[in-house]
Nucleic acid binder design. Sequence first.
DNA 1: CTCCTTTGTCTTTTT
DNA 2: GACAAAGGAG
Length: 739
Amino acid sequence: MKDLLDKLNPQQKEAVLCTEGPLLVLAGAGSGKTRVLTHRIAYLIQEKGVNPWNIMAITFTNKAAQEMKERADALVGMGSDALWVSTFHSSCARILRRYIDRIGYTGNFTIYDTDDTKSLMKDIIRSLDLDPKIYKEKNLLAKISAAKNNFVQAEEYRRSVSTWQERKIAEVYMEYQARLKKNNALDFDDLLVKTVELFQTCPDVLDYYQNRFQYIMIDEYQDTNTVQFEFVSALAKRNRNLCVVGDDDQSIYKFRGANIENILGFERVFPDAKVIKLEQNYRSTSSILNAANNVIGNNIGRKAKRLWTENGEGSLVRFRQFQNGFEEAEFIAGDISEKVRDGASYNEFAILYRTNAQSRLFEEKFMMANIPYKLVGGINFYARKEIKDLLAYMKTIDNGQDDLAVQRIINVPKRGIGAASIAKVDQYAYEQGIHFYEALLEAEFVPGIGRALGKLQSFTTFIQSLRSVTGYLSVTELLKKIIDDTGYVEALKAEDTDESRARIENIDELISKTAAYEESTPNPTLSGFLQEVALVADIDSVEEEKDYVLMMTFHSAKGLEFDQVYMAGMEDGLFPSYMTLTADSSDDLEEERRLCYVGITRARKVLTMTAAQMRMVRGETQYNKTSRFVREIPRELVDLGRDVETQRRFSKPSSGMFGGSEAPAKKTYPSSVFKPRAFTVNKADSLDYTVGDTVRHMKFGVGIVQAINDGGKDFEVTVNFENAGVKRMFASFAKLKKV
DNA sequence: CTCCTTTGTCTTTTT
DNA sequence: GACAAAGGAG
């Protein structure tokens, strides 16, 4: 136990030892807050004899939760599976599965994602006869979400509004909740709202959880919103052993309702709170840290603090400007290849940007340069059409109450059931006060249904037949049966386009996800899988051991760290975004600056910022100035790369969109890049193609395999492409498909 | 009912 | 420039 505390600095130690009563830990970037939390958990269990069952920790992502559990496990060595470590949303979902029947839902409720709520809202606009030109579902949903984040429920909202416009929104809000309830569905915000409602209406339930969670810890507290605060304070009310950890400088989710008051006013809510500041940074070099300090120093509304480090000075922050986005991407790809050739491995690098749209250029260049990468964010895996379709089948089989899911797949694949028939059934269901699927089962009573009846009946027969086998099929087997019986993959195969092949790959991935779920869960069920799937974030699937470059938005990068970070698109109008530059209040700009601070502090050793003079945005060419954030870094901390040679090398006009492949490919990515060092990909046992076979690559198209070398950790394949010429690549990354 | 073409909107960021 | 929604032809 001694060594457990020995590894901590005095402030960290204090935070670990201070277990009783409210505690606010103001933890600067890289100051070891995760370490404090895990050690605190270990200390509670080992020294204070607290039962792990009585400890709750809330993290920002499922991945962080997983890691915290593992680390606590390593320190304590036992009992940590009884710990409750999870995100707000997952915690609430778990509580609601158990008790939601007390507030009029049933425990097998579905969780609607953004797409689902959008189509629901579209329905509502139609049925309330609102002008879709004035009432956009996105705006309405944003209003409702904002209300929910502040824990304002529909009735209360209606009572509080005054203008005619607001009353309309209140009406929509009421209808929206009614429909959700009818579908036995919750949106993301509802998970929080309904849990707090449950606590308020059922004191015995709250009592149970208050007793259970004697010690509560919240990470990333600066990004909690009001309803999350209500949730936490309800739970912590009895024992008051609440430890929150956060950094006001890293608050970047105001747009999602995060209430900075939660952290700034913590001492007001808990006057007896102890406050500990962690200001020593263990992550970054002093050059990087100083750059971060200087940038964030321009913000007015923040708690005074200044991070320091004992780490060496390190190299200066690099800044490079390019003609356009292509060259920017080319530079970064070339830079990484060069460093890998000199002994670095891909997973040391991350590329961060403001908007997801920026990732496309990098994807293109990286694919060309044969650099393995993983894209985080963008379209969530589970939001893809093919995945949502298959999940909708599973939902329909699991719980016919989800009208949205049923309507999604009733004509997928095409069964000749059109909008008109669906509307008739929907109307009938509405009149009878039954679910859409129930209405389908008695379709013969639907007025004017006519020739569609047979088609509807064969659909329900099909679903019923799938339902009847759920008892003895595993989730994976059921999914495979759905795919077979609907001919979903078969149809995609027949399409035979790049897109359809990518979809099939996604479906294969879904199958492995169900298999993985069944392996990792003691009592796997269909409902269990669907629940788990609803709350996973893209970042949760990142595996550190895998050797790839990560590309993501600044937002997604929160809580992560990398040896070498590229901050791309450092231009006024992009970052900070045009919206915040034109806004009249400086609050939004300050939030952008915090986002920049988060980005800078992700880097351990090398930080590179890049910008383009000219950039295509929404099909238009924009000319942007260098970001003010770059200019806020003192000149002496920046390496501007005035070296003529590098300028010339990277400022060459690129030869068209895709034409640039030959020249840079030779120069920047020689085969020595493929030293098999530290390359820990999953090597396939065998390849399904061999020398002489024709294969297809995502980017290069069709080619003939010339050679396959077993490079030990992976197969190295040489392919002669029809259009792209001869390329050597790793089999596990290239994902070649025999044709 | 389905497929194809045209039109409009969008981009900040996400559980 | 991309993608979804709407409108029109078969």
